[in-house]
């Protein structure tokens, strides 16, 4: 029996967060879905509760998502991180890979990959 996975969605666009939530809800084994509009908010949530998966944008109002990625992987290496950004060229993908990202999806062209990746993650223990 795999426990329910808690998800944290980080994006400064309310519309994107809403759509993401909608897409994710149908997946099985999802526990709490939390949302954050900036990195400060996100930091508080991660420090407070157990977060199993994070969906993270790169350009955020109070910082660079790639730096945040490094922080998450340092304080909670088991948390999976899915990068979700409009900066989807090879340099950014490579940088995210080097910083420990588990997945990288183009926000405009690959958004259906997010629920797909989440399904894979939640199936595991």
């Amino acid at each position: 029996m795999s426990h329910r996975k808690n998800i944290l969605l980080i994006d400064d666009s309310l519309r994107i967060l809403t759509y993401l939530e909608m897409m994710i809800r149908e997946i099985g084994n999802i526990g709490d879905i939390e949302t954050a509009c900036d990195l400060d908010e996100a930091r508080e949530i991660i420090k407070k509760d157990q977060t199993d998966v994070v969906v993270l944008d790169i350009q955020l109002p109070d910082g660079n998502g790639l730096d945040f990625l490094k922080w998450i992987k340092r304080i909670s290496p088991v948390t999976r991180v899915i990068m979700f950004s409009n900066f989807a060229d090879e340099s950014h993908r490579e940088a995210a890979r080097n910083d420990g990202a588990d997945y990288f999806f183009d926000k405009s062209h690959e958004f259906e990959e997010v629920p797909r990746a989440l399904s894979l993650i939640t199936v595991r223990r």
Partner: peptide, 11 residues
């Protein structure tokens, strides 16, 4: 170019 802010000068 956003890359200047996200990845820095060299990339």
């Amino acid at each position: 170019p956003g890359i200047l802010d996200t990845l820095g000068l060299i990339p």
